[in-house]
Simulated assay, not measured.
Amino acid sequence: MLPLFRIIALLEGVSYILLLFIATPVKYFMNEPKYVKLLGMPHGLLFIAYIVLAIIIGSNLKWSSKIMRTVLLASIIPFGTFCVDKKFLKP
Rank of each mutant, 00 (worst) to 15 (best):
S65N: 13
R69S: 08
V71M: 07
L39G: 04
L39M: 11
N60S: 03
A49M: 09
H43L: 06
L73C: 14
I56K: 07
P33D: 11
L38Y: 04
S64T: 13
I51H: 08
S65D: 06
W63P: 07
I56N: 13
G40R: 09
R69N: 02
A74S: 13
I48P: 05
L61T: 08
H43V: 02
P33E: 09
T70M: 12
I55S: 10
K66D: 15
K37M: 05
S59T: 11
M41N: 11
K66T: 05
L73I: 03
L73F: 09
K37S: 14
G58A: 14
L53R: 04
E32A: 07
G44D: 12
K37Y: 12
W63L: 04
S64Y: 14
A54K: 01
F47P: 11
N31H: 11
I57A: 03
K62D: 09
A54E: 00
L38M: 05
I67N: 05
Y35K: 11
W63Y: 13
N60C: 06
A49K: 02
W63M: 14
L72E: 07
L45S: 01
L39C: 05
G40A: 08
T70K: 11
Y28D: 15
A54H: 03
F47L: 13
I57D: 00
L61R: 13
Y28V: 04
F29D: 15
V36M: 05
G40P: 10
L46I: 08
T70V: 14
M41D: 03
I51S: 07
G40F: 09
L45C: 13
I67T: 08
K34G: 10
Y28A: 14
I48T: 09
P33W: 06
K34S: 07
N31R: 10
L45Q: 02
